[in-house]
Design a protein around this nucleic acid. Structure first.
Lengths: 209, 209
DNA sequence: CAGCATCCGCTTTGATACTG
DNA sequence: CAGTATCAAAGCGGATGCTG
């Protein structure tokens, strides 16, 4: 991207991350942690492969990502955010908070990949029962898994399966999001096809109704 | 801008404000409040006039700005952010916070317009003496003025002159910013050409040294 | 002058094909 | 798997022209 050539922190930030696709690439790396070129492609439906390669080069030069050779037998390059890149999480969560109302009128053609649930959950979930013992939930949507852990008032949402979840939810992405964001009751989620493996009362840790 | 067609709040936000120049236009409106087309042009050096007109149309359609006919004898259209547009302030301040370190290596060719000081001041100033009586500072850089008011722990930074400032500072934008951000002492600012009209001790309300 | 619209050369993007 | 190569279409920047 051409520089705006303005001595302004906002303009300088946009010089680095204002290009098309750039912040979405950072989103993917925030959600998935270290991942491969191919993982990014599948997580960014619609991106041209040459554009992804070019953006990754720019992010590398700007010091936002690193490339590391995975040890055998993986034999692939892993892309990972540097601390400077991770610092964009606050920006991305704020943009997501602002953009959330736009989802209400989202047309049917839009894609929704399961791992995209991670950021809204990170933004909105709070531990409603901070004095209860720590608990771990696993969310399963299609072939992907998300782990939600609450411990003494802190909530951690991460991509990937959980070792010993206290409760596992299986369902479609939209229903599970509606459930956690309080837009759908537990009963309605169950009717809508969400399965609960474990004591579903543990959900009260995060949702009221 | 083409839609990313992703059911993700971040992608939806970028569908609306991810275009080149768009967030900088919002920055200008956040700083200046209601302003004219021409004000935006001067505040956005480098933008093509057709692009500005097109972006304003998009912002209007997205419900982020309104156009109102100013009463005579002004006879011009005033552009103003809607509440929805103003809600972008948090996003813009976060992006600015992230981008601030990039200013350290800013090349000499960059422009720095005086009113751009408003956002960094809004982001960083805190009332160090919340029990002192309310006070008003006026900052004058070239032909522009910024008002900084501290009252019971709250700091308000706004574009435009002040009626009865307790202290007026006159100087160049960079020195004044360095002063308020604690990167330059009051003594050094004075040596560097910053003038103080009034009791410069009032600056202790915001800076330590 | 304020507020655009038009035209033109250049760059960026998106889609696809191809390679080690 | 991880890219590069190619090319048409869209977007951008700059200049200029038009209308009250």
């Amino acid at each position: 991207m051409r520089s705006y050539q303005q001595r302004c922190a906002l303009a300088k930030a946009l010089d680095v991350v204002g290009d098309r696709w750039t912040l979405l690439i950072v989103r993917e790396l925030l959600i998935r942690g270290a991942c491969r070129y191919t993982d990014l492609r599948t997580g960014l439906p619609g991106i041209a492969t040459n554009l992804l390669a070019e953006r990754l080069r720019e992010l590398d030069e700007a010091g936002l990502i690193t490339r590391e050779e995975a040890p055998p037998p993986i034999a692939t390059t892993l892309l990972r955010l540097t601390p400077r890149g991770q610092a964009l999480e606050r920006v991305i969560l704020e943009l997501g908070r602002w953009g959330a109302p736009l989802l209400a009128t989202s047309p049917g053609g839009d894609q929704l990949l399961p791992h995209w649930l991670v950021l809204p959950l990170r933004l909105h979930l709070v531990d409603l029962k901070p004095r209860d013992p720590a608990c771990t939930l696993e969310i399963r949507v299609e072939a992907e898994a998300i782990t939600v852990r609450a411990d003494r008032g802190a909530v951690d949402v991460s991509y990937g399966p959980s070792k010993h979840p206290d409760l596992t939810l299986i369902g479609d992405a939209q229903s599970i999001l509606n459930l956690f964001l309080g837009r759908m009751s537990i009963a309605a989620a169950k009717t809508g096809g969400v399965q609960f493996l474990g004591p579903k009362e543990l959900l009260r840790r995060f949702v009221a109704n």
